[in-house]
Design a protein around this nucleic acid. Structure first.
Lengths: 187, 187
DNA sequence: GTCTATAATCGGATAGAC
DNA sequence: GTCTATCCGATTATAGAC
């Protein structure tokens, strides 16, 4: 792995653990095993490096979700698989986390990948739910777009509850709860 | 308002806007119109001041929720009123926000009020849902604890989606979605 | 109680040698 | 490309005068 690559990966890890405000160029360099000159040669500064890191993390998250969405089974089974997938719950969502960073939200370039990721997620889930409805797998009364937003919010909020409790239990409860509600719409 | 009070209020505002890591004693002092000596006279340091601020914010959040929970109407109407209450969506939740702050989560004293607030919220909602079930307002199949966690998670995740999109629309969609799912259980 | 002075360290970046 | 030196303001306090 070359230096530029190590810098990006080191930034990804630190953004996840500490956020944008809590991540210093010095910390990035130390974790990457690179000097200052090296970092400022490859990137124009902290925002530039963060942009590269955020873009990669966002892409990875979409790819991971797509694996479950395009898997086998009914729509509800696929959404279920997505919700129940193995996650590092206590670490939180590496993308959702960024929305609490004022400097990320204030910078259109940094916010864009975050925005696009959640927009894509909601849209993809809404499509699945509409598909399930059209196939008769799901109740016709169910609003695909609103329900999709609910599903994504349950995950993001689940992370919040888990970190507050220092336990993944509330996350699992929230997921169980929304699955229970969804299953009542399947017959 | 005396100096100590202004320092706490100033800290509350900054913790909401910038988080713990992003909030400096200097910024707190400036916003409170107080000098350094003043701050270190009333509080032992940043963590001490943050603790006072977090405790107050947590209490306020519980009091606000309790207003809706103990209001008039059926269980579902009260939960609906809570979910649809006026909120500064784009500012995010002043308590939930703190779960993304590594220094808050790592400090048991700072995390405790956050933990207690969400534990109380989930418990209170679970009680309401159980009450609704016992009264026959809600489907007996509904799991009170899991559903309560879902409801809280939808709010917390809704804030995340709204900040990502720089719009309160996804928040409202998520709330609409979970209300739709809940209403299907009421008959 | 509040103020100013001082200090050690960090944050984010630039300059120029190698 | 990478390194070291340097810069300047911010951070998080402590000390001691008023």
């Amino acid at each position: 792995m070359d230096t530029s690559e190590r810098l990006i990966e080191s930034t990804r890890a630190l953004l996840w653990e500490r956020g944008y405000v809590g991540t210093s160029p010095k910390a990035i360099q130390q974790r990457a095993g690179a000097g200052q000159g090296s970092m400022y040669h490859h990137f124009s500064g902290k925002p530039d490096l963060a942009l590269a890191a955020i873009r990669r993390t966002a892409e990875e998250m979409r790819a991971l979700a797509e694996r479950q969405f395009s898997g086998p089974g009914t729509v509800l089974e696929r959404i279920s698989a997505y919700l129940l997938r193995e996650r590092e719950v206590l670490k939180g969502c590496p993308v959702g986390r960024l929305t609490q960073d004022p400097d990320v939200v204030a910078d259109p370039d940094l916010r864009r990948p975050v925005d696009e990721t959640f927009a894509w997620l909601r849209d993809r889930l809404a499509g699945l739910l509409a598909e399930g409805r059209d196939r008769g797998e799901l109740d016709a009364a169910l609003d695909p777009a609103a329900t999709a937003a609910t599903v994504v919010a349950v995950l993001q909020g689940g992370y919040v509850l888990a970190r507050a409790a220092d336990s993944d239990e509330p996350f699992r409860q929230a997921v169980r709860g929304v699955l229970g509600l969804l299953e009542a719409h399947a017959r």
